[in-house]
Design a protein around this nucleic acid. Sequence first.
RNA 1: GCGGGCGUGGCGAAAUGGUAGACGCAGCAGACUCAAAAUCUGCCGUAGCAAUACAUGUCGGUUCGAGUCCGACCGCCCGCACCA
Length: 872
Amino acid sequence: MATRFNALQADSTWQKVWDDRQTFAARDDSGKPHSYVLEMFPYPSGRIHMGHVRNYTMGDVLARFRRMRGYEVLHPMGWDAFGMPAENAAMEKGVHPGTWTLANIETMKAQLKRLGFALDWSRELATCKPDYYGHEQALFLDMFAAGLVYRKESAVNWDPVDMTVLANEQVIDGRGWRSGALVEKRKLSQWFLKITDFADELIEGLGKLDHWPDKVKLMQENWIGKSQGLTFSFEILPGTGRGTGEAGGGGLPQSASPVEAPLHHQPAAGGPPPRSGEERVAVFSTRPDTIFGASFVAVAADHPIAQAIADRPEVAAFIERCKQGGTTAAELETQEKLGFDTGLTAAHPFDATRRLPIYIANFVLMDYGTGAVMGVPAHDQRDLDFARKYDLPVQRVVADGDLRDPVFVGDEAYTGPGALVNSDFLDGLDVEAAKRKVIARAEAGGWGKGSTVYRLRDWGVSRQRYWGTPIPIIHCDACGVQPVPKAQLPVVLPEDVSFAIPGNPLDRHPTWKHVACPACGEPARRETDTLDTFADSSWYFIRFASQPKDKPFDRAVAERWLPVGQYIGGVEHAILHLLYARFWTRALKHIGMLDIAEPFTGLFTQGMVTHETYKSADNRWLSPDDVRDGIEIATGQPITVGRVEKMSKSKKNTVDPEPIVDRYGADATRWFMLSDSPPERDLPWSESGIEGAWRFVQRLWRLFDGDDTVAPGEGGDPTLDRKLHQTILGIEQDIEALAFNKAVAKLYELCTAIERAAPSPSRGNAIYTLMLLIAPMVPHVAEEAWAAKGFDGLIADAAWPEVDPKLLVEDEVTIAVQVNGKLRDTLTLPKDMAREQIEAAALSADKIARLLDGKPPKKVIVVPGRLVNIVA
RNA sequence: GCGGGCGUGGCGAAAUGGUAGACGCAGCAGACUCAAAAUCUGCCGUAGCAAUACAUGUCGGUUCGAGUCCGACCGCCCGCACCA
């Protein structure tokens, strides 16, 4: 036998064997218990990166482990293949997006295969192929028929660089998530999915996801943003307001008087009474208890009330000004509250003589609640800022302790608990009781209703792009919106498109969009928008489980596999992808296609792979390849070592997995990915780390390749037997908990123990078992050794070793002896020794006796099997 | 601003309230070798010859006993953000 493990040769040998034998193809009907292990499928950007390697290695260890434990494991792989980069490549390099994407898939598939992942490639899918997206179109039509899809003219986030609409989730700090361009507001007719119908379910479902990180659940809960309160309306009264507009209203110094102005709005003289065209204005408030503290009503710039008077030039100008404000964090913090007094007033529902001025305000959002708010300055910071600026009354109605008035409200609104004051029939109630009372009165009076409002908006899925799933809709002048008949699916993307000019190539294609109306047969137009690519990834895990030709999935087969027991991916998908997939699955349940509520029962979000950053003497980012021993190779100049950061092209601190696999082999690469850092934390890549992993693989090989008789059995070395069985148990627990770093440490320990053990049947058995234990992590060296020692079949198909509970038991234990909580000695004692005997042994130990110096201890605490603490 | 998380050797990290630093990386010393690589052995928190003392961001608390639980603070990271 060779003395050195030839990783490259073994890698290709065993990868071919697994491929040829379809070792990892999942059978729908094997009779074994099913286990679905899934990692988030990659976007085919060109090459795999270390993040992929780490992600897929983790899933692979679990999948291989579960197989060995007797599960029928579904562990598939595919490609999230639609998206902007392909169109960018088309624009930059003149290749067709499909050509570019398929070539990338081919490259990346070969790269993944070189890592020896136990994937069922027979179920491979790419979302850009008609045999995937055609079924997605069918699902879209089913949702359409069920009323979960609608079209609406709405202000959308328009990315001027990518020339497309973005979902709210895709706008980060006011910029497009991909292009980084400042997002503009545009009015367009858009397709929406009714995710808000499921808002409550989606929150509630989180409660049952015990195997999800709390952090992700919390992020989703906050994103959905459920608020309870009162939606109610004010009667609008024209002509009684100040009607001063915005001019001169800004920046008035605040009155130093501790006595606040009365809440009655003083009508201004002169001018014709303004009209709104509306009779009532509805607002939503989570603090109906503070209704007696209201001193104004504010509506959003695009609220109907504002729009109705937008023919006045000063109103139009103000609305325009509102839209200009940036939405970045910094801008929002410094942005001034702006208001425009419409001159209209609202009648206070509990006191018709009280008139609240109606302002148009830049801080009110049209698409949350009703697009209008009541302003209660004393108990809301924004309202207070606004009131100070426009010199509106500030009246406190919730008192924290001191009930005496007047109390001067400073620059900080009070939002805590307390007793109601200055509030008529609410006086003396606490906040919660007052809320209930106001809601009850509003409902009784018919002018309001207790309501729940969500931050979550419906999912806008229209994209004005080519490289996506065509929305299967036809627009007919006579018949209106018509779904494409299912028999005509898939609606296939045309191949002959040009990317020479920005915009949507589908829209300007000469023939593609011209079709006959399915209802009347007259000339009509295809929808030229495509679906957000997050739709593609919202059901791919179902298609993996079942992929019939004639429909999206077979319900019975899909339900046999789903839900995914363990889903692994990056935390960056905590909201977008995971929320959409949860919604999509619930929508399918809602329309009776699949009886699964939650697609992923277990979720794990892994950390990033990071690397040191390097800068040259003249401040250029340097790649690790350009650096050796603190010197830039090209110039001989010393370099600066920067922070350890996420691998990124811009900082040039990436390490391409392929040369690493070429040099060290798949097993060493996998082992490094699993070692040291806990999987949820970042993993710093290092050259010495991968070398250490390589050395370990060689060390394993030396053990397997030694002269020992490697065979199942035991005997001759009870200490080693015990260590072995403790390790088996520990590895099982660690892998199930995805605590790979701990499993790795235990395997190192076991190796050391075996190396130091004298030859015996126990030792031969330990080496045999070690092969099985490391097989999920470093499968190639395990197969090679398994074959070299002449064992039957593949180790990938072998059974996981059984733990013998009898062999776990230690007969002696080390007891720590503390005096006043400080460790003073340790004793090795028989395991089952009685308390009194342990205590006696501890007290008579030399060191302890010396410390006690003949004095009797005040107290002795004995924890059997652990320690003795003597309180002196 | 709101919500959440994390602070342990030179580095990555372990540690059901019970012997802090397992395991790995780096380092040091030695063996083998003409030499190097590989491999093997030992050392490796700080101070100290040692006994010992001090050590898990800081300060307090609970406890026989705290890295772990509680409170306050400091620092870093992440998510959301004018959501009424």
